[in-house]
């Protein structure tokens, strides 16, 4: 019964996410609305962590296998990308290294600034 109750809450938030997706005219996935609503519910103590944690951990453990079919679908769009493959890989490598450096250095810079203030 505990598991069923937990699933009820999670599925309810999935539905609320869908409602938001239908009502708000932005290209934001229903799952993001649902996640933000769940976060708000947890922060406002409307839902307690223990009320969703077991079913949540179970669902999250499913993640990797949910992506198999979408990846296999690469067969369907292979013709669209096969000529640009090298360019795409270079773009992915360069942008990932840039993003890694920028996010890390900015976090460090802000963190240090705050640390200095604490010294004063």
């Amino acid at each position: 019964m505990k598991f069923l109750r937990q699933m009820c809450i999670i599925v309810l938030f999935s539905f609320l996410g869908e409602v938001c997706r239908a009502v708000i005219p932005f290209p934001i996935p229903a799952s993001i609305y649902g996640m933000v609503l769940m976060l708000a519910a947890l922060a406002l103590k409307i839902v307690k962590v223990e009320q969703v944690k077991d079913a949540g951990t179970f669902l999250v453990s499913f993640f990797p296998i949910l992506f198999i079919a979408p990846t296999v679908n690469l067969i369907a769009c292979w013709d669209d990308i096969k000529n640009d493959l090298l360019v795409l890989v270079v773009i992915i490598v360069v942008t990932t290294v840039l993003t890694f450096g920028v996010s890390g250095l900015v976090a460090q810079w802000i963190g240090r600034g705050k640390g200095d203030k604490n010294h004063d």
Binding site: I10, V11, F13, S14, G17, E18, P29, A30, S31, I32, G34, M35, V36, M38, L39, L42, A43, V49, V52, K53, A55, G56, T57, L59, V60, F62, F63, I65, L66, I68, A69
Partner: peptide, 19 residues
């Protein structure tokens, strides 16, 4: 197809560890 049905509920559960 049945697996894709789980994607939204599972994503919502990311909120738990985030919180």
């Amino acid at each position: 197809q049945v697996l894709s049905y789980l994607l939204t509920p599972a994503t919502i559960c990311l909120a738990i560890s985030f919180y």
